[in-house]
Amino acid sequence: MPPAPRRAPARAASTIPQVSWRQPQPAPIVLVSGPEDVCAERAIAGIRDYLRAEDASLEVSDIRADDYAAGQLLGFTSPSLFGEPRLVRVAGVEKSSDTFLAEALAYLEAPQDGATVILRHTGASVRGKKLLDAVRAGTGGGIEIACAAIKRDADRFDFAAGEFHAGQRRIAPAALRSLVSAFADDVTELAAACQQLMSDVAGDIGEDVVQRYYGGRVETSAFTVADTAIAGRYGDALVALRHALASGADPVPMVAAIASKLRTMARVAGNREPSKALAARLGMKDWQVDRARRDLSGWNEASLGIAIQAAARADAEVKGASRDPVYAVERLVTVIATRAPYGA
Rank of each mutant, 00 (worst) to 15 (best):
L58M: 11
I336C: 04
K261F: 01
R152M: 11
Y327C: 02
V326P: 06
A259D: 07
G34M: 00
L176G: 10
T99N: 03
V32I: 04
P24V: 04
A10M: 12
S97W: 08
F223I: 03
T338E: 09
G46V: 08
N271V: 14
L282F: 05
D324K: 13
P325S: 10
V126Y: 07
D315V: 12
L190H: 07
T220K: 05
A259M: 04
P325G: 08
R152H: 11
P2W: 12
R152V: 07
A311C: 08
A311F: 03
L108G: 13
R86W: 11
G298N: 03
Q112H: 12
R177P: 05
P173K: 10
A246I: 04
D250W: 10
G320K: 04
I47S: 06
K276D: 15
R331E: 13
K285C: 03
V326Q: 15
D186Q: 11
I150H: 04
I143N: 02
A166L: 11
P24R: 03
E41P: 00
H165Q: 14
A134G: 07
S33D: 07
A244R: 01
V135A: 05
S297W: 03
I205V: 08
R136N: 11
I47D: 06
E94A: 15
S275F: 11
D200T: 14
E54H: 14
A269G: 01
G162R: 12
K129I: 10
W21Q: 01
A8W: 09
A149T: 05
N300W: 00
D62K: 13
W299C: 05
A12C: 05
F100K: 03
P9M: 15
F164G: 01
D49H: 12
S57Y: 06
L304M: 08
P173V: 10
C194I: 10
L108P: 09
A175I: 08
P35E: 03
P35L: 05
A102P: 02
A266Y: 00
R281P: 01
S260E: 10
I230G: 00
I63G: 07
D113L: 11
L31C: 02
D113F: 11
R323S: 14
A244M: 06
M265W: 02
A166K: 11
A269V: 01
V19K: 00
L332I: 05
A110M: 08
E84Y: 15
S322H: 07
E41C: 09
A226K: 01
R339D: 01
D62V: 14
A149F: 04
W287M: 12
S57P: 06
D158W: 00
T334F: 03
A249P: 03
P251Q: 06
R152A: 15
D67F: 05
V252R: 15
A279I: 09
G215K: 01
